[in-house]
Every structure is written in structure tokens, then in C-alpha cells.
Amino acid sequence: MGASPEQETALPPADPSAGEKVWSRRGPWRRVLQGLLGSPTAMISAALLVLIVIATLLAPVYAKHVAGTDPFRSGLSAKIKIDGKPVPVMQQSTEGLGLGVTPIGPTWGPQYMLGADGQGRDVAARLLYGGQNSLLIAGASTVLCLLIAAIVGIAAGYLGGAVDGVLSNLIDMIWAFPVYLLAISLSIVMIGKSYAFGPFEISSGSLIVPILIIGLVYVPYVARPIRGRVLALNQSEFVMAARGLGIRPGRILWRHILPNVSTTLIVFAPMLMALNIVTESSLSFLSVGVQPPNASWGTILQDGQTLLYSRPMVSLAPGLAIMVTVLLLNLFGDVLRDVLDPKSARGR
């Protein structure tokens, strides 16, 4: 328990009876990997997730070769062949008063497999392209959010005093902040303009803006529970002992605080992904984020709202995609959490 290197390497592996989690210094990552490889749930869910990512990356191939459409062009006057006969994608209603135009429904064939949206574009192709944007935005903003929330939560909980006061004020302000006002304002400010920050160029369709906004919006939601956890940990014997012994705060944070907080972060991660994908759809509706004709699962969902009564598939498809992705992330996350937490291994 001193600071000398030899003593540290001589420490025994994490003692499960120690009553708190400490990451072992000997090959922790190897242990994690072994744990994951050994769990069928983790392997299957990881494989499926990778499959989803690959599918979205193959979107251009699908659009060109399978569906034969350009999912970013309005297909308002497009026609496809069904049973050899040309069928318009936007179908004029012919019964009754003959009002209304309905996009074609799912054909379950290569072209317009899931039907067309309100502009005659292939939903399946857009779903794949949209996955790229959604996963990127949701993934990046989740990582950003967890990172910032961890830093803020731990700092506020551990350091206390004025730091806690300022950070807590900041957290409250972010949580009560009128994000939609900012979004509307940004969308108007950025019409037709682009700003350059070093290597980044931010124009109205840039994904950096929604990633930043979504990443910040949920920081309080994660930071406050973490702060609460840290406050409780402050009173635990190990932290108090470590402090009493004068161990560097950095060390305490790394060996005692962070491991305990990491499980909270891991549990939050898939839920945040889901919330972020949905938040992205609201932001895109307000014209911040993915701009037409680009797609994201959120924008397809919004498109589907106006077709809910006639073509529910347009909103079901992205909804299911989001659900499946989130479910898989959760299953994987559960195993990961178990593996990272040596104590819980006993309970299995």
C-alpha cells in the first residue's frame, strides 16, 4: 500500500472479499476478453451488432444493385415493375372521391422492399443509409455524454466544496436549458452558411452540431447519479483509509472510484443510445442535424408520422431498427458489466 513500484506489482489479484471493486493489475483486459468470449449472449449480440454496422456501411451497394434507386432523390414520378407491369410509386387514389396519393406499400421484393415514403423514396435503402448517420450520431454523442458526465460527476462528488457548487449549478442550468430554442436558433443562423474550425467545417448539414447538442443535453442525467454514487463512496472505508494514508487523489480515483462508477456508465450507455437516436429525430425535425435528403432513423420516423394511418411501415421500420440495436447493446452491456465486476461473477 505504499508508493513503491515493487510493492505494487507484488499485490495479489483483487480479493473478492474486499467488499469493493478493484481492478486487478494483472492482465485485466485479458480477463475481460476471456469473459466476453466465454459468454454466448455477448458473442451473439456483438456479432449481430457488427452485422448491423456492416449492413449500414453497405447501403450504397444495396441502393445501387439491389434496389436500383437513388434514395436521396424525390421519386415522385418513379415507376417500378411488378409482375412485368409498370406501377407508379406514388399511387393516386381511384376509389370513392379519388382524393389523396399514397406511396407504394412494402413489396418485399428487391425494389421498395419496405415501401416508399412520402416522397417516393425507397425506405429500405434509406434505412440502411440512415443507420450510418444514426449510429454515428448516437454513438458519438453517447460517448461524449458519458465522458463529460463522468468527469463532471466525479469531480463534483469527490472534490466537493466550491467545485461541487459551481458544477451543480452548471448541471442544473444544462438540464433546464431550452434546447429547442437553441436548435431553432441554430437552424436559422446556419441557413446557407458554413463555419470552419480548424479541420472541421460546420455547415447546416454537418453532424457535429447534433452530436455536440445531444451529447450535452443528457450530461446532467448521468452526472447527478454518478455524483451521488461518488458521495456515497467518499464515506466508504477504503476511500477514507486511502485518503488518510495520503494516497494521491488520482490513484484513489483510478483504483477505487472509477471502477464503481464504470458500471453505472455501462448501464446508462445503451439507454442513452436509444434516447439519443430519438432526440436526434426531434432535432432533425427542427432542421438541426441530418438535413434532407440525407436520412437517419429519426428522420425516417418523422416522415412516417405523416403516413401513420396509411403506410405504418415507414415509421415501424426505423422503430424496429432502433429497438433491435438497443436490445443488442443492452445484452452486450450486461455481460460487459458482469465481466468488469469481479464480485458479480460469484453470483452467477
Binding site: 436509444a274 430519438v278 429525430s281 420516423l301 422503430g319 438497443v326
Partner: peptide
């Protein structure tokens, strides 16, 4: 997980 992944406006409209 389904509940978290379904946006509230969609659930409401359904």
C-alpha cells in the same frame, strides 16, 4: 428496452 427505444410521440400516435 422496447419502451426506451420507442419515441413518445410515436407511442402516443399509435
Amino acid at each position: 428496452m422496447m419502451a426506451v427505444a420507442m419515441p413518445v410521440f410515436w407511442v402516443g400516435e399509435m
